[in-house]
Computed example of a mutant assay.
Amino acid sequence: MTEQPERRNGEDRFADHTSSVIDLREYKQSRDPLPVTFHRRELDAILWLYGRMVGEGQWRDYAIDHLKEKAVFSVFKRSGEIPLYRIEKNPKLASKQGAFSVINTNGLILKRGHELSQVLKVFDKVLKLVDK
């Protein structure tokens, strides 16, 4: 004799299982997408700049936000205020204007580009000759 699980009267052995077809495209779209993050080299470049500006006494605090559509590194003069600058990575804009941008307190885009190192040059001070 073979051992089979006991069935109640009139119960089919496949009654427990429901069959349905799932479209994989729908399944992928229904799942929550992973948030956008800064890669290690990008974060290294941003934190190097942050350290330099803290050393100069211009910046004091920062915050990192990883959202569904973009990653944001916000820089503060004091921790309780609105950010002085936001360094954003938006992959949807990578093929157009560039994924990286620097935005000031008023929402004005100071620089945008495809490479983070070029975008961060907006913070480099240019020495100017002043005539008396």
Rank of each mutant, 00 (worst) to 15 (best):
V72R: 00
W59G: 03
R86K: 08
V72L: 04
Q58D: 10
V72I: 10
A71I: 02
D65Y: 05
E69K: 11
F73G: 01
A71Q: 02
D61H: 07
D44S: 07
S79K: 15
E69L: 05
D44K: 05
V72N: 01
R52E: 10
G55P: 01
R52H: 13
F73V: 03
Y50V: 00
G55Q: 00
V75Y: 02
A63D: 14
A63G: 12
Y85E: 07
Y50F: 04
R60F: 14
L47G: 07
A63K: 12
Q58F: 12
S74A: 13
P83R: 00
L67N: 14
I87A: 03
G80A: 10
M53V: 00
E81S: 12
G55K: 00
L43M: 01
L47M: 10
E88T: 05
V54G: 04
Y50P: 01
G51D: 10
F76H: 11
H66E: 06
E88D: 09
L67Q: 15
L84F: 15
S79T: 15
I87H: 02
G80L: 11
E56I: 10
I82D: 13
I82G: 15
V54D: 03
L84G: 12
R52L: 13
A45F: 03
Y50R: 02
R78H: 11
Y50N: 01
L47I: 06
F73C: 03
L49A: 05
Y62D: 12
A45W: 04
Y85W: 08
K68M: 13
V72Y: 02
L84E: 12
K68D: 15
G51P: 06
R52G: 09
L49N: 06
Y50K: 02
I82C: 15
I64L: 08
I46V: 06
R86S: 04
A63M: 13
R86V: 03
P83F: 03
S74N: 09
E69P: 08
D44N: 11
V54I: 04
L67P: 08
V75P: 04
Q58C: 10
D65G: 06
D65K: 05
V72D: 01
G55Y: 00
V54K: 04
Y85R: 04
I46M: 03
E56L: 13
L67G: 12
L67F: 14
M53S: 02
G55D: 01
I46P: 00
S74C: 11
D65N: 08
W59N: 03
Y85N: 06
P83L: 04
R78A: 10
K77E: 13
K70R: 12
R60D: 13
K70P: 09
L47C: 09
A71F: 02
K70S: 14
L84T: 12
L49D: 07
L67R: 15
Y85Q: 05
R78C: 11
G51C: 05
A45M: 07
G80Y: 10
F76Y: 13
A45Q: 07
L84D: 11
L67I: 12
I87S: 03
P83A: 04
I87F: 03
V54R: 04
L67C: 14
L43P: 00
R52S: 08
Q58Y: 15
L43D: 00
Y50M: 01
W59T: 02
E56S: 14
W59L: 04
G55C: 03
R78M: 12
K77C: 10
